[in-house]
Design a protein around this nucleic acid. Structure first.
Lengths: 120, 120
DNA sequence: AGAATATATGAGTACATGTTCATATGATGG
DNA sequence: CCATCATATGAACATGTACTCATATATTCT
């Protein structure tokens, strides 16, 4: 990510008021990055399905593999990401590891997202 | 994406009730794909910033390049994606093309997302 | 202790993604 | 009509991603 002021558009006809208004609205770099990261984590069909499944209740890795008809390894890799993003939580119980949604924000995001997907 | 039933986890100790409950909750393939696609589109810092900027009002490509301090080309490529996803709308006016948020779902999603990002 | 089960992880690979650079398109003004 | 400005787009490239396969870790049972 190289930065140089001259990389920027050389248009002359900008709209200063609109620009400063937009600049004010822009959140901190960190916030933007975290928000994008969150959405990126929700932006994969496998993870979406995992999270939908977990919205019905606690499940172990094996259950998820069965539900999604995917390999245990594939599921495990995805759960790793979701754990790192603190989207899911887990508890070990014997040989099993049970996963749950960390909170209900995800469900709300899904509902909101579905409202958009189910277009006009 | 290869599919074979034997690719699936060979655990014996699954939880049938939890599984069928989860399976019921799983939306159609299409729905999952569309939802994931939506989130994927929101899952990039550049696009997040573009959308935040647009939440303050209509902007032309040039304005966005100035605001984000990025090349016109980079912005244009991202707007292409956002257009295709029907997240933004545009109108041509002379040499300029002005972009706006297609609806306010995105703002709601951002608010919801920020609530999650601003942790416990 | 040793076998079996459940999960995690590292390497490898095919494919997607975000940017740059160069150039095309399309509108406006001399 | 030609030059200029605003935007769009294609190719190229470097990086990221999602899976598979093989293997490691950890727990339970005998």
């Amino acid at each position: 990510m190289k930065e140089s002021v001259d990389d920027v558009c050389q248009c002359r006809e900008t709209h200063p008021e609109a620009i400063s208004k937009a600049v004010e609205v822009l959140p901190a770099e960190d916030t933007v990055r975290n928000l994008a990261e969150l959405f990126k984590n929700l932006g994969d069909p496998t993870r979406v399905r995992i999270l939908f499944a977990l919205s019905a209740g606690e499940l172990c890795v094996c259950d998820l593999a069965e539900i999604l008809q995917m390999s245990q390894s594939a599921i495990s890799h995805q759960l790793r990401l979701l754990r790192a993003a603190r989207i899911v939580r887990y508890r070990k119980l014997g040989k099993n590891v049970f996963y749950t949604l960390d909170d209900d924000h995800v469900v709300l995001l899904f509902e909101q997202g579905l409202a958009h997907v189910s277009h006009p």
